[in-house]
Design a protein around this nucleic acid. Structure first.
Lengths: 247, 247
DNA sequence: AATTTCGTTTGATCTGGGTCAAATACCGTT
DNA sequence: AACGGTATTTGACCCAGATCAAACGAAATT
């Protein structure tokens, strides 16, 4: 893994992952001097990137590492409402208060843009607004799929769904062709998984053990997972895996 | 309630509720001949407006009535993932397949725009893309709040949350000042509420009865609700009702 | 090597909400 | 007023997952 050194002189060509929202190479040179509004920032694993209620003076996207979006009730119950992987966007243009806690679950590098200049940039380049709209609609779809999971799936189905999502994202990020068994590392602790799935950590642990015993997954250590048969996993997840629709 | 007759010659000034996404009065006349791409359509209570998987040839917004967005698993478990009230937008620009079922729960009038012209219109008028982005971000926030409800709230809290949301929306739609007791009609059957809240209809019924017995709400018939003390309801919902954040 | 820490697993028990079933209220029709 | 269909309520029972508790394992610290 190459590491991105904080710098103010880079443009997107230096990023290991090209930003989906904005890219200097996508925009006419004269419109923006990116160096003036763009900077990198790194966060240690476990540290809070944004507190809910904080004033947000920047937007940005994850370059490396994994962060989570969580919501907390007064009595301490917490629900994860989003998982931020490399290339995911953080922050809401046009609003200056953060709605959720953002926490780094691994070391995280963010590529940030100061908010005010970013907003004027967005106004002058419709392409960015369009891209942002598309990304937001994708997130909305993901959130709605998650609502089905939270409201209607059993604990076993929840775990299987989570594993399939991580497997898929991992495969697409690493550009590994989906041949044979899928292998990946769980990016979250059992507790974080529980917060994501609306379960307790004990139930998460038990269901993972059950899936292992039933041969749906193999475990090496606590985090390293092998999925011998992805279709089997999808079946356990209760997902539609057909794309068949009539004319 | 005045009814909107299907017509192709109206513009936004005829709409009982001004479209939040597009409005002829907001756009330069020369850019668009709205009559060519805009039309009204009415749906009977209980009828399906859009089937998941269908080709979508239009986008639009709800003018009157209430519709729901639902997701269904193969075995019939369903989860509502959105509630569409007047002025809410339906359809995703840039994608031609519907993701969810849309069902009218009352008689519904939609104001529709043919998709292709709408997309070119959107490209030529950045204002629309911005407005749409803002609306989508609002929906995403709502979806995330709903994830907390689905994942972590008790049945009683779910019901109280639902009632508070309906009460709030009803009050803002009807521009009733929030003085004293709130009075409104439930727009959904117990079963639809259950699908929304990730519960069974029996549990919904029981919890409503419990809230009535405890004096949190009053019921007249099955649908007509009075909330004597809104703060009490919010308390039952487990929501933060303080806006206090330190400097 | 012993010890603390943190994440995880496993066991025993409890309970909120699901399931199944029956009764009741509320329509719009005839 | 009687009827038939649908929405809702209420009751009895059960189970998936929560809760409480203890043990385990691997990495970091002494």
């Amino acid at each position: 893994m190459t590491q991105v050194a904080p710098s103010v002189t880079v443009d997107c060509s230096d990023c290991p992952i090209r930003h989906r929202a904005v890219c200097a190479r996508c925009e006419p040179e004269e419109l923006v001097n990116l160096e003036e509004i763009k900077y990198y920032r790194t966060y240690q694993s476990g540290s809070r990137i944004i507190w809910a209620g904080d004033r947000m003076d920047f937007v940005g996207s994850v370059v490396s590492g994994i962060a989570t979006l969580t919501q907390t009730m007064e009595d301490g119950r917490t629900q994860m409402v989003g998982l931020l992987l490399p290339s995911d966007f953080v922050g809401r243009p046009g609003r200056n208060g953060a709605e959720y806690d953002v926490t780094a679950t691994t070391d995280v590098t963010m590529c940030c843009f100061r908010k005010k200049p970013f907003e004027t940039l967005m106004e002058r380049t419709p392409h960015i607004a369009h891209r942002l709209l598309e990304m937001t609609l994708d997130e909305l779809d993901a959130a709605r799929e998650w609502m089905l999971l939270l409201g209607r799936k059993t604990a076993r189905e929840k775990i299987a769904s989570f594993l399939s999502i991580i497997a898929r994202r991992d495969a697409s990020l690493n550009l590994r062709p989906t041949k044979g068994a899928l292998v990946f590392d769980l990016p979250l602790t059992r507790e974080a998984m529980a917060d994501y799935l609306g379960l307790t950590l004990e139930t998460v642990s038990r269901q993972i053990s059950a899936l292992r015993k039933d041969g749906v997954i193999e475990l090496e250590g606590k985090r390293h997972v092998t999925v011998p048969d992805f279709d089997r996993l999808l079946e356990e997840a209760g997902d539609d895996n057909d794309g068949g629709m009539l004319a």
